[in-house]
């Protein structure tokens, strides 16, 4: 795990609202999990309206990342440890 910039990642959407991000995560994931705000992914706490949605597609995590001046990004990032962490600690949803 580490900084997103050093990893194999793809930006699926940028400058979107939190609700839009949730829809994009939903559509781009084969497994979905709910977690609470503050849940750590890649050493950073997730932000948003609880429960937060984190998706998994293959070996990639799909989740929202918010910056104050740039809104919410949806990223897909390859990290097997984080995928395991979400599967173990998230609540599976359909």
């Amino acid at each position: 795990m580490g900084c997103l910039e050093n990893m194999n990642y793809e930006v699926l959407a940028k400058n979107c609202s939190f609700k839009e991000a949730r829809d994009i995560i939903q559509k781009n994931s084969t497994e979905k999990y709910e977690v609470l705000p503050g849940f750590k992914l890649l050493e950073k706490p997730l932000m948003g309206v609880p429960p937060l949605l984190v998706g998994i597609k293959g070996q990639k995590l799909v989740y929202g990342y918010t910056k104050p001046c740039h809104g919410t990004f949806v990223v897909a990032v390859e990290d097997l440890d984080s995928v395991d962490h979400v599967r173990k600690n998230g609540k599976p949803v359909r």
Partner: peptide
């Protein structure tokens, strides 16, 4: 929306 996201958190 980002401000709302930070505050909700």
């Amino acid at each position: 929306d980002a401000g709302l996201t930070y505050t909700t958190t």
